[in-house]
Write a protein that binds this DNA or RNA. Structure first.
Length: 274
DNA sequence: CTAACTCCCTGATAGC
DNA sequence: TGCTATCAGGGAGTTA
């Protein structure tokens, strides 16, 4: 799936194209996504309203509509969001079309249907804030070495899985967790509670550097991610360990090793990471 | 409580 | 060629 950088690239690409535009109608087709598609709310609270802003929280895209409702889209593993001419041929797994008033439409395509679409009213956003349980943004001020040291106390979970826990910090998925730990020189299997303050500082610095760089590169493309303009990102050219099992470490030439942790493939250099 | 496992779904790829 | 098994960027719910 798109991790934080890919979602942010979609947000940045889409915002200038659709902000200020009015959604003429919403067309839903096909089966349910991870959550049922809220057709009635899409018709009542999104259709007929203008997109005021697009924000991002974790890996969720938040479209604030005139009228105050918020359209929340998660891309799951294989979701894409792009703007197309209304007459452009539709693709397999195009599940929703947001038809604008200027001959264009935003299409949500999701092969695996792990994505989700929700619509919350302004009151619901306030009263039952849907993201209350989520940890801080990794590019925000609350994400610090001291915070991580405190959160990780007593935890024996591998540091890689700890970084992928959205209650700890949001937006870091399997690709970037591997890359961050390589850059920080820490083995993914290290118990989170055993990581010391200097090591957390390296993790925080690596996280900021790698995520910002990935956003600047337009994200990572593995198989099916494209940004809002339909172009591929090129951060995959920068991947140092992810998917490189058996290939030489770019720093020391030792073969990169792979180990499955909590069901997710983990890649590391046995010589550069301790 | 923590952490690992299971499942949702389609498609690409590897191996026979 | 065609079959089966495995794997894939997420996240919620269940199990131990």
């Amino acid at each position: 799936m798109p991790e934080l950088p890919e979602v942010e690239v979609v947000r940045q690409g889409l915002a200038p194209l659709v902000c200020g535009r009015t959604v003429f109608k919403v067309v839903c087709s096909g089966p349910r996504l991870r959550l049922p598609v809220p057709r009635a709310r899409l018709n009542a609270l999104v259709a007929g309203h203008r997109i005021e802003a697009i924000d991002r929280r974790a890996k969720y895209l938040l479209f604030t509509m005139s009228g105050g409702a918020v359209l929340i889209i998660h891309l799951g593993m294989s979701g894409r969001l792009g703007l197309f001419p209304a007459a452009a041929p539709r693709a397999k797994h195009d599940h929703l079309r947001f038809v604008f008033d200027h001959g264009m439409e935003m299409r949500f395509n999701d092969t695996r249907r792990f994505g989700s679409v929700q619509v919350l009213t302004a009151a619901e956003m306030k009263e039952q804030y849907p993201f209350a349980g989520l940890g801080p943004e990794p590019l925000g001020r609350k994400f610090s070495a001291a915070y991580l040291l405190n959160m990780a106390r007593q935890r024996r979970q591998p540091v890689k899985n700890f970084l992928m826990d959205s209650r700890v910090v949001v937006g870091i998925g399997n690709i970037y967790a591997n890359e961050i730990l390589f850059a920080a020189g820490i083995l993914p299997t290290t118990p989170a509670g055993a990581v010391d303050l200097p090591a957390w500082r390296r993790i925080v610095a690596a996280t900021r550097f790698i995520l910002k760089n990935a956003i600047a590169c337009g994200g990572t493309t593995i198989a099916d991610y494209v940004n809002a303009s339909g172009e591929s990102g090129y951060f995959q050219l920068e991947l140092k360990v992810y998917g490189r099992n058996g290939l030489p470490c770019p720093v020391c030439r030792q073969p990169i090793q792979k180990k499955v942790l909590a069901g997710r493939s983990s890649f590391f250099c046995p010589r550069c990471q301790h």
